[in-house]
Nucleic acid binder design. Structure first.
Ligand code: SF4
Ligand code: SF4
Lengths: 158, 158
DNA sequence: GTATTCAGGACATTTAGTATCCAGGTTATG
DNA sequence: CATAACCTGGATACTAAATGTCCTGAATAC
């Protein structure tokens, strides 16, 4: 899995505490000392996926495109890592006995079905957790987190 | 995910129908027209993991090391792909505010916990399905599969 | 002894992930 | 309008991992 997934999740949580103001890629990167240009690419992907909105120019930056309660962890994974399953069925049965070139083995093969089933439970789990859930739990553990985050963004203005 | 996982699962199912006789890597590869030397590496990994047993020399080859009912899909995934989770927590919080260098963020971080939780359901699902389950389901759909497989192994002797 | 086969290290090749840079377009501000 | 800040996206480079091949050595049946 892409490392950008982790960055994106953190950035979305932080952005949920910076509601109302746009945060630049530079500051989001400085927050965790990440390579700015590369993080920017991930933010672009989130924007294309409709998770963030971006504004150019001075006072520009990124914001959450919708209520963090409606942004699931799966949304982020799909936006950054793509929609492909981890298990790639290369349909090797087509080289096997009794092969039918017209059949879609990704659908009918028992192994493929079992692997897809497992990935489905994984995705369901990720889809059931939102950025707001994460943020709330962080606040429950360390109530100062939102303020700390906002302050850090302000101080990273340089 | 490693392509070898798919090969390994097919090979284990096929081996479950060839109980009693050792099958060489060459024939297992020829079955699906796979690169012999590379498949052999995956079979070696399965052997190291205790899923297969191997015998050198003429009449040598691979066999299942135990009842296919006790070989789960997870066993194979772990043997080929390694035990690492897909989500890599690189503990970027250590660069963040209020960081504690001694803390293990993979354990205490909310995001990391959520991702690990999702992967856990995935693994549980894979652990609950055995090679025997797969083989049985294949037989239910195409009862001739075991005989076909044994015949194919015999004819691939060349 | 010889042929067959697995074990495993040493490559070579290909692909994907990571990272940087720049040229072009957008917008706030004075 | 001019400027500076900022995002967009393509081009490019670097790195790591997956994929694939080859060869030597050890085990074993005959
Ligand atoms: S049997 Fe299933 S997993 Fe294997 S190649 Fe066919 S479709 Fe893919
Ligand atoms: S917050 Fe969690 S996922 Fe993010 S770096 Fe820290 S431990 Fe890893």
């Amino acid at each position: 899995m892409n490392e950008g997934v982790e960055w994106a999740m953190h950035s979305c949580v932080n952005l949920s505490w910076a509601a109302g103001e746009a945060v630049t890629a530079k500051r989001l990167a400085a927050f965790y000392n990440l390579p700015t240009a590369y993080l920017n690419k991930q933010l672009q992907a989130l924007t294309r996926a409709g998770i963030l909105t971006s504004v150019s120019g001075p006072k520009g930056g990124f914001q959450l495109a919708r209520d963090p309660r409606n942004i699931s962890l799966l949304d982020i994974v799909v936006a950054i890592d793509g929609p492909d399953d981890a298990f790639r069925c290369t349909e090797i049965l087509k080289e096997g006995p009794g092969a039918d070139a017209r059949a879609d083995y990704t659908k009918i093969c028992v192994i493929s079905q079992a692997m897809r089933g497992a990935e489905l439970t994984y995705r369901r789990e990720l889809a059931s957790r939102s950025i707001a859930d994460i943020a709330d739990e962080v606040v429950r553990r360390t109530p100062a987190a939102p303020d700390d985050t906002r302050n850090r963004f302000a101080n990273l203005k340089s």
